[in-house]
Design a protein around this nucleic acid. Structure first.
Lengths: 110, 110
DNA sequence: TTTGTATATCGCAAATATACGATAAATAAA
DNA sequence: TTTATTTATCGTATATTTGCGATATACAAA
C-alpha cells in the first residue's frame, strides 16, 4: 500500500484478507490443487506442471509457505511440499464464518 | 503481472483467484461486513466508518462492484450499495469446492 | 439560477506483486 | 574431488495496487 493502513483494521479482517491474498493468484491455486492431488509430498515436479519459470514457482511456493498453507521439508537435493491441513482447516472456518456473517439470506435490496 | 499469464491457467483457477483478490484487502472485507450488517442499503455512511479518504473508499467500492460482490443504485445525490447475494453465494460454492478438492482429510505428510 | 452536498474520476506518488535470467548453495553422482 | 542436479535467492524490469488530494459530475436545496 502507498501507506500501510493494515493496522487500522481488525485482526479478523486482516486474517481473512491475508489468506485471500495468498490464493489471489491462479498459479498459487494451481500449485495447491496439484499438491493436494497426491497422497505423498511433491518433490520437485511442480515446475513441470506450471507455465512459469522455476524461480517464479519458487517464489509462489515461498508465499504459500509464509501463509502457512503448505509445509515443506528438505530431502537431499530436493524440497518436498505438502498441504498444511491444520492452517487450511483454520482458514476454511475463517471463510465459513465470513460467509455466514455476510450472508443474511435477505434478498438484495437494490 | 510483469507479463500477463492468466491465460495459462484454467477458468476455475482464475475465478477463484479473482474472487480472492476482491477480498484480499482488509478495507474491502470491512466494507462487505458493514454493508451486510444492515437490512437496507448503505447510502454514503461507509466513509465515516473507515479510516480512509473518500476517494479511496470509492475505489474499493468500485472493485467490489466489478467483482460482483455488491450492487448499487443511485438515489438522488447518494449512491446506495448492498450485498449481491447471488454472486456471493456463487463464490461461496466456488470456495467450498476448492476446500473440498484440496482437503483430502489426510494428515500432512511432511 | 446559484449554492451546497455526495460521489466518482483523474493524476500522481509510493508500495507491492509478478516474472525471468543469472547465480548461489547444497547435495548427489561419477 | 569434480561434475551435475535441484532449489533458493538476487537483481532487475514491468505491472498492479493502494492512497490521497484535487477536481468533475450530478443532483438537491435555497
Amino acid at each position: 500500500m502507498a501507506l500501510n493502513k493494515k493496522d487500522s483494521f481488525s485482526t479478523k479482517e486482516n486474517e481473512l484478507s491475508d489468506f485471500a491474498a495468498a490464493i489471489s493468484h491462479p498459479a498459487r491455486v494451481a500449485i495447491l490443487k496439484e499438491i493436494a492431488k497426491r497422497k505423498t509430498c511433491i518433490c520437485g515436479e511442480i515446475v513441470e506442471v506450471l507455465p512459469l519459470a522455476q524461480s517464479t514457482v519458487s517464489q509462489h511456493l515461498k508465499a504459500l509457505l509464509k501463509a502457512g498453507l503448505i509445509q515443506g521439508k528438505v530431502d537431499g537435493v530436493k524440497s518436498c511440499y505438502c498441504i498444511n491441513y491444520k492452517t487450511f482447516e483454520k482458514f476454511e472456518k475463517t471463510f465459513q464464518s465470513f460467509f455466514t456473517s455476510t450472508n443474511s439470506n435477505n434478498p438484495s435490496c437494490c
